[in-house]
Design a protein around this nucleic acid. Structure first.
Lengths: 227, 227
DNA sequence: TTGCGTATGATAGTAATACTATTAAAAAAG
DNA sequence: CTTTTTTAATAGTATTACTATCATACGCAA
């Protein structure tokens, strides 16, 4: 496994967390604490205690915890885009490519050549994304945040996948809607399986993993709507 | 239009807001304030100021603002289930029925016989649901809240629709997953159209309304995956 | 009409959150 | 060895999310 260094633009932070030990610790331990406490209970003070630093030090890197979540989400989407590129660039058949992409979306961290991120627990980051990433945009400030370009990571990933959908069926009217629905469903269905199991057939007590089941379901839905 | 009185169980409140003028005002004005401020900015203090009452008085009805959101969401899902029942009980053909249900999910308040709710602005309640309802379960307490039966409104609605899907195609493997995905997409796509338009083809500047476009998209996706 | 329970309002208080600001010490860079 | 940068330590503020107490107003029954 190679190690990948993902660099995000200045708009995502006050000071680049990749530029210092403390910064990298904020990110790596931040993922763990966020996963344990959930976004609402998570505070910079609690994270500071965890890493034996101070609230003020963390505030030097991120304006607030919401921006921290946006940073982590964008980090994840950028990594995912990279993995997809890496795993599918050689595939010519759009249908094969699209199916592979869905597999990656549902379970990127288990892909053979998935690139490692230094110091970051990808499973926990994925778990944070499943539970919290919708909160990046589900708020009053969405338009302001969007106008600053903080959602480009997610939007560019969706656009790339949508272009594959268009190759499969150029007549299809809703490639973007289909892709954003699938992206959302890929973490929602796993969340439902874990917490509201009556809302989905996907289940932990199945021979296939939840991620495989989700990929099956989404592949079926997407492919049939493209025929 | 008839007026419908929706009664929710005791577990949804400390004191039934339907049992007093103040309680009904908390609900009706609460929807408006929640719609304006968003869930994070919304506080009982601000609502109290709006209705010329006090924080303490509102706390007598609801334990906290999250429970208030759960109450409003369940209120909406119960109303929606009622509208669906009212508008589709006479339809025998499962396919026709399912298509109609999708139409209602996307735009219940504009259905000819939609039942009115006393003092409640349904459009604003719908707007709150689009933006905030996911926050009822996207939190650390989801399992505890679920174990108290506070999500039965949503779950029973999804189960009813899933049973129609099963009638259309008893072989289909994912009726519940399909329904929960569609339910989520029905508010997500409208939100995207309004705030992150590059994620969807659904748009306000189209001859058809956003709700109609969403219904078209979801109908197409759902029906093709059932064939 | 008196009294009694219920509903609301008024007021106060607390612990935690989400920050900002200042200063000092330590580490790294020139 | 000095300067700059980085971090830690400390303090402080406004707001949030509550809980608690007490007074008052009401509708109603004896």
């Amino acid at each position: 496994m190679s190690t990948l260094n993902i660099v995000l633009g200045e708009r995502y932070f006050k000071k680049d967390p990749q530029s210092s030990d403390l910064g990298r610790k904020i990110v790596s331990d931040g993922i763990v604490v966020l996963d344990e406490l959930g976004f609402e209970e998570f505070t910079f003070k609690k994270l500071a205690e965890q890493i034996d630093s101070t609230e003020a030090s963390i505030y030097r890197y991120f304006k607030n915890k919401h921006k921290f979540l946006v940073y982590l989400s964008t980090y994840y989407w950028s990594w995912l885009e990279y993995v997809i590129e890496f795993e599918t660039h050689h595939i010519d058949d759009s249908i094969v490519k699209f199916k592979r992409i869905i597999g990656i979306i549902c379970h990127a961290e288990k892909f053979p050549d998935a690139l490692d991120l230094p110091g970051v627990n990808i499973s926990k980051l994925r778990s944070v994304i499943d539970k919290e990433s919708d909160k990046t945009y589900l708020n009053r400030q969405v338009d302001e945040i969007n106008s600053k370009g903080l959602f480009t990571g997610y939007k560019s990933l969706c656009a790339k996948i949508a272009s594959v959908v268009e190759q499969i069926n150029p007549e299809f009217q809703y490639p973007k809607a289909l892709v954003s629905m699938i992206m959302e469903a890929s973490h929602q269905q796993v969340f439902f399986a874990q917490h509201l199991p009556s809302l989905t057939e996907i289940s932990g007590i199945n021979e296939k993993s939840m991620e495989e089941q989700t990929a099956d379901f989404l592949c079926h839905t997407a492919m049939s709507s493209l025929n």
